[in-house]
């Protein structure tokens, strides 16, 4: 049930990311055509492009968090003995959760202040821009939690099967 929900969210995010990257390319392409060919440059293209870009980056960061394919340096940690590595990874994931919590908490602290201003061109409340930080923190946090739970289950299973072998 929980896994199904998490999968659905991931699927939705994937669709959003594909749409956003296409729209970003399309908007900026349109802007060139309008300016160069028709001499009627749109006023909104830059701001809308930036807005979609921010959300796309946050959403892809969430996907990458679930896949555990963030840029990272794994070779030293791979040298650790299994048990120690498991403990260390769990510890560092808990710290990562802490940072997600900061994103949520601080994002909500600044939200009311920034939301009182609107973006200069499209008039989108800056709240919609800054909301990406707590939303990103929440989604990343959820998937990190999933990873922690999964890795603990795997670890326990592996240990018990090893014990069986010894018997």
């Amino acid at each position: 049930m929980i896994k199904r929900t998490l999968d659905t969210i991931e699927l939705a995010i994937k669709v959003i990311c594909r749409v956003f990257i296409v729209v970003i390319v399309a908007i900026l392409f349109y802007a060139v055509v309008m300016r160069y060919v028709f001499h009627r440059p749109p006023s909104w293209s830059i701001e809308l492009g930036r807005f979609l870009f921010i959300w796309m980056v946050i959403f892809t960061a969430v996907l990458v968090t679930r896949e555990q394919s963030h840029m990272q340096i794994t070779f030293l940690v791979n040298l650790l003995p299994k048990r120690l590595r498991f403990l260390w990874l769990t510890f560092s994931r808990v710290l990562m959760l802490g940072f997600c919590w900061l994103m949520i908490q601080q994002g909500l602290v600044i939200y009311p202040i920034v939301a009182s201003a609107a973006s200069p061109c499209l008039g989108i409340s800056m709240g919609w821009w800054y909301l990406s930080i707590p939303v990103g923190g929440l989604l990343m946090g959820v998937y990190i939690l999933e990873t922690i739970v999964k890795s603990i289950i795997d670890h326990v299973k592996m240990n018990s099967s090893e014990e069986k072998c010894i018997c």
Partner: peptide, 28 residues
């Protein structure tokens, strides 16, 4: 030690805010 760069930067920055008495709002 293998933490994704995004998070190790974030944690280091949070640490800097806490230790240097800077507002945490900087992060968001």
């Amino acid at each position: 030690l293998g933490m994704p760069l995004y998070f190790s930067f974030g944690l280091a920055a949070s640490f800097a805010c806490l230790a240097g008495n800077l507002p945490l709002e900087i992060i968001a």
